[in-house]
Amino acid sequence: MINGLFVGDWSELEGEIRARWTKLTEEDIDLVRDDIKKLESIVQIRYELPEEESIAEVEEFHKVWTNRNFQ
């Protein structure tokens, strides 16, 4: 489980989040900002996923984002 924040250019990250989870609303994106836990919760709600699945999706997204932007 990842705790904390996404790091990097928010506008780029926001675009990536929008592309990955198209059901998220503008308000959802504003709530998330860079908080991983909030993103996990909102993905779970919007996509009606079990908690474990939404956590796994966001963790994988975070891993790819981090690797791409900080290596």
Rank of each mutant, 00 (worst) to 15 (best):
L39G: 05
L24T: 09
K63Q: 12
E57G: 09
D30T: 09
V58A: 07
D30C: 01
D9A: 07
I17P: 07
E48C: 03
N67D: 14
P50W: 04
F70K: 11
L5K: 13
E51G: 08
V32H: 02
Q44D: 04
I2G: 00
S54M: 10
K63P: 00
D9C: 04
F61Q: 08
S11Y: 00
Y47M: 11
V58W: 05
D9R: 08
T22R: 11
G8R: 13
A56W: 13
D35M: 00
Y47K: 04
L24Q: 13
I2Q: 08
E14I: 06
V32E: 06
G4N: 11
T25C: 10
R20P: 02
S41G: 07
E59C: 03
T22M: 01
F6I: 00
Q71W: 03
E12N: 07
D30L: 09
D30Q: 08
E26W: 03
F6V: 01
N67V: 01
L31V: 04
P50Y: 11
I2T: 05
S11G: 05
E27C: 00
R46G: 01
L31D: 15
I36W: 09
E40C: 13
I29W: 10
Y47R: 09
E12K: 02
S11D: 12
N69P: 09
D30E: 12
T66S: 10
G8L: 08
E60N: 15
D35V: 00
W10E: 06
E53L: 05
E16M: 12
S11W: 02
I36R: 11
I45C: 03
V32R: 06
T22E: 02
E16Q: 15
E40V: 15
I17W: 02
E14P: 10
D28Y: 00
P50H: 04
R46Q: 14
E52M: 07
E59S: 13
E14M: 07
D34T: 03
E51N: 03
F61G: 09
R18P: 01
M1P: 12
E14D: 04
L13S: 09
V64W: 15
F6Y: 15
R18L: 04
W21D: 05
D9Q: 10
D34E: 12
F61R: 14
T22N: 00
N3C: 02
R46L: 04
E27Q: 14
L49H: 09
E14Y: 01
E57W: 10
L13M: 13
D34S: 02
E53H: 04
I42K: 03
L31A: 07
Q44E: 15
I36E: 11
E52W: 10
L39W: 01
F61E: 05
R46F: 01
K63G: 08
